[in-house]
Structures are given as C-alpha cells and as structure tokens.
Design a protein around this nucleic acid. Structure first.
Length: 450
DNA sequence: TGCATAATTGGGCTTCGCCG
DNA sequence: CGGCGAAGCCCAATTATGCA
C-alpha cells in the first residue's frame, strides 16, 4: 500500500489472464487520522472505495484545495480571481461543468460485492495519482493488473516522477542500459532472476541483476579464470579486453562485496561467464568483419569500456545510496524503539501499583514491545498494559514465595502471541519470570539464556 | 432504526534473508 | 552466527453498508 499525505492506494490482486479489463480496480483508502474511536464519526469525508482503472469520458479532474472545501463549495459560487485572462476563464467554465458533476457525485460510490461501478477515473488522473505512488507499488500494479500493464509500460516519465517524488534527488539516475521500469524492477522486485527462488532480494548493481547466492556463484568466474578464456580465445591473446567487462568483488569467503575491480590483494575481482563469452564472440565477429581495420576495433573496444565505466559509476553510487538509506532507516528505528521504552516506562510508573523499570525489564511482553520499531501510542500501550500487569503480578508473587530459577526462562514465552489469551487458552504453567536467580529486573545483557 | 455482515485498520508476532 | 529489518500473517476493534 502506498501512502501519500492523506491518501493511500492499495493494489488489489487481479489475475491478468482474466481479461476483464473494465473490471480492474484499485482501492483508494481514506486515511483517518489516528485518534479516538469516535473521532471520525462526525466527519463527512471521502470513504475508502474501489475505483476502476478505466478511461471514462467526462471524469473529474482534481482541483487545488478541493479536499478542504468539498462540502462548502458550490459551482454557482465559483470565483475567478481578478485579472484572469481568457484562458483562465475557459478553464473556469470547464471547472464549473466539472464541479457540477462533482457536486452530483459528491457522495462516494457505494460498493457492493459483485457489483461493477459505472464511474471511473480518466488516464490523466491516473497519471497524476500514480506519479505520487511508490515505485514498488507501480511495479506490483504492472504485473498484477492487466489494464495497468500498457499504461505503465508506455509512460516512463511516470516512473521517473514517482522515483523522484518518493526517494528524492539523491537516488542515482539509471544508467543508459536501463529503462526506468527495469531500474524499478531491480530495486523493488523479488525473486532470483535466474532460478526464480522467490525470496531473493539482493540486487548486484555491478551486473544489473538480482540473483540468489547460488546463481551468483555459478554465473561468475574469478579474474584468473577469465584471463585463461581470453588468452585462448581462437588461439589469440585478448586479455587486454578485460576492461570492457563489468566486474564485481568477492571477499575471501566468496561473499559479494561490491562493484569491481578489486584494489586489494585479499579481495578478488570476478566477471560474469556470459559477459566473457559474449565479449569473445563479439571480438571474433568484429575481426571477421574487418580483418585489417584496427581503428574500428579500437572504437568498438572504447565504446564498450565507456559503457562499463558508466555502469561502474552507477553501481558505486547505488551501493552508497543503499548503505546510506539503510543507516538512516536503522537510526530511525532505534529512535522509535527508544521512544517506546521511554513512553512505556512513563506509563508503567503511573499505574497503581506502579511497575518499575527493573520489573518492566523482567517482563517478556515489555521486551517484545520495545523491539518493535514503531512509534508508541495509547493504543499500543493499552495492548501492552494487561500483559505487563499480569506478568508483574506473577513476578511479585514468585518473589514473595522465594521462587526457584527457571532453567529455560523464556522458552514458553517469547514465541507467544501478543493477543490476550482467553480463559480457555491460559497456559497450564503459571507465568515464570525469565530472570529468577538474578537480581529482579536486571537481565544479563545479551544473555545467552534466550 | 437496528441488526448482521463485510471491509478496513493497526498492532503484534513469526519467518526468513541479508549483513557485519 | 547473531542482530536487524521486510514481509506476511493473525487478531481484535472499528467502521461501512445493506436489508428487513
């Protein structure tokens, strides 16, 4: 799902081969502000609804400020700023027509199961909407919604705008060998591009491919092996062509490090076997075409080197961008976790009786809760509170009994659900604090007990 | 208008892949 | 190998909708 300001867009899976193009739809979701149960009750706002991905004549175009004054504005009161020129007047007239339609259509379409909507949104609107969507979402739509396929395929600027809007100018532009779609596919797609192992996510920018580790290893060869091939190519030594090969770097354990070539002894430069074979084939072809014309051969070689250098520069930028993004995200998550700790500690101290930080830290539910990288709020606290109270009470009871240490403190606790258990699902064992035998509330840091 | 049901939403948890 | 994060699943609560 994509969120942009107060709008969300969710792609519903629609089997492409169904051929029911007119029925393709997405879901425009009303993003309520988080708040009390009745907070949104009195509001009249756009509700979540499905919209068909169709080109419907006369469909509405969104106007600036519309979201704020849908209820108040009326077509007859439409005001045109003084000094408007003829073009603006024409637009205003058109606006008036559209607003009339909008006024009639003010209430969102009611959706019912099995009923197809008659209203739609035109392609210009879709272009605008999708321009503000996450490229990952576009990718999903392209593959899952038949009616979106051509639209997304034929509008590369849509992808570019989406990328710039979502990730800002710091994300590198794609190299000349990649279309915007291919670029998005490499960034957000899943699955090995060779064996189709579904969970592969790692993209090797040096090779512009997403592969699983096994496929990567099977498709690459070390520099010395590549040189053997280049040396024996048609009985001729063409090792000097190696600069025209995209390269990556492996460490001594065979792990991929980054775009090549390697500059230190401990790291190994690798090439793709297919690239080496292709280079030899192309060289052979060039030689056969112009056996005596060395200038053309040099031009061909130089062109290939330029491409490789361009890809290398791009891959380096991309690797840096990924690392920076990862670090930023990690920092953000840490901040959220810290915020949760502080919030829950504060709330726990306000309970009656209060739960101290030491007691909190002995509660598995607290430890699980502060490992979740999301901002805390009252709802999450209300979820946590009953669990904490129970665990703290059990802890206190055991302490009063002078309880015995639990040999496997969290075995039956950490994998449990956060959902409060019903009376019929209460574990047969009473809650056992995980750290008995230690001073209460001071779990050994990085303990190997769990 | 009230009830039944579908749809939506947010939070917690688990699994799995990636990374250091 | 442990930690971390993405993704997906589950669940409970809430809201929207249709129908009698």
């Amino acid at each position: 799902m994509v969120n942009a300001k107060n709008v969300a867009f969710k792609v519903n899976k629609q089997t492409p081969f169904s051929q029911t193009l007119a029925g393709a739809y997405g879901t425009v979701i009303n993003c309520r502000k988080p708040g009390g149960k009745g907070a949104a009750r009195g509001q009249k706002e756009v509700r979540t609804h499905h919209v068909p991905l169709a080109n419907v004549p006369g469909a509405l175009k969104r106007k600036r400020g519309e979201e704020d004054c849908n209820e108040q504005r009326h077509p007859t009161t439409l005001s045109i700023p003084s000094g408007s020129d003829a073009a603006k007047s024409a637009v205003a007239t058109l606006d008036q027509t559209l607003l009339n339609q909008q006024w009639q259509q003010r209430k969102p379409t009611r959706l019912r199961k099995g009923k197809i909507l008659s209203k739609g949104v035109d392609l210009d609107c879709w272009f605008t909407i999708l321009s503000f969507s996450d490229p990952a979402q576009l990718l999903e739509m392209r593959s899952k919604i038949a009616s979106c396929y051509r639209f997304l395929r034929d509008n590369p600027m849509l992808w570019k705008h989406s990328r710039n809007y979502y990730y800002g100018p710091n994300m590198p532009d794609p190299p000349s060998q990649l279309s915007e779609f291919q670029y998005a596919h490499l960034r957000h797609g899943h699955g090995c591009m060779s064996c189709h192992a579904p969970n592969t996510r790692k993209t090797y920018w040096a090779f512009l491919r997403r592969w699983c580790k096994t496929c990567l290893q099977s498709k690459t060869l070390k520099e010395q092996d590549a040189m053997v091939l280049l040396r024996n190519a048609n009985g001729e030594d063409i090792t000097y062509l190696h600069k025209a090969l995209p390269s990556g770097i492996f460490d001594s354990w065979g792990n991929f490090v980054g775009v090549g070539p390697a500059s230190t002894h401990s790291l190994k430069t690798v090439y793709l076997l297919s690239d080496v074979q292709k280079l030899i084939a192309e060289y052979t072809q060039e030689r056969q075409r112009n056996p005596e014309e060395l200038a053309e051969l040099r031009a061909w070689h130089a062109k290939k080197i330029d491409l490789v250098e361009e890809r290398k520069a791009f891959a380096k930028k991309m690797e840096l961008w990924e690392e920076t993004t990862r670090n930023t995200k990690s920092f953000d998550y840490q901040a959220k976790k810290s915020a949760r700790k502080a919030y829950y500690e504060h709330k726990a101290m306000q309970l009656s009786p209060p739960i101290t930080l030491r007691e909190l830290e002995a509660c598995p539910s607290y430890r699980r809760a502060v490992a979740i990288p999301k901002d805390p709020n009252n709802t999450s606290w209300l979820q946590l509170k009953p669990k904490l109270e129970k665990e703290a009470a059990d802890l206190a009871a055991l302490r009063a009994q002078g309880g015995t240490p639990d040999p496997h403190p969290t075995m039956c606790l950490t994998s449990g659900t956060s959902t409060p258990l019903g009376s019929n699902t209460v574990p047969s064992q009473p809650f056992l604090p995980p750290l008995l035998g230690y001073p209460v509330g001071l779990p050994p840091p990085h303990s190997h007990l769990f």
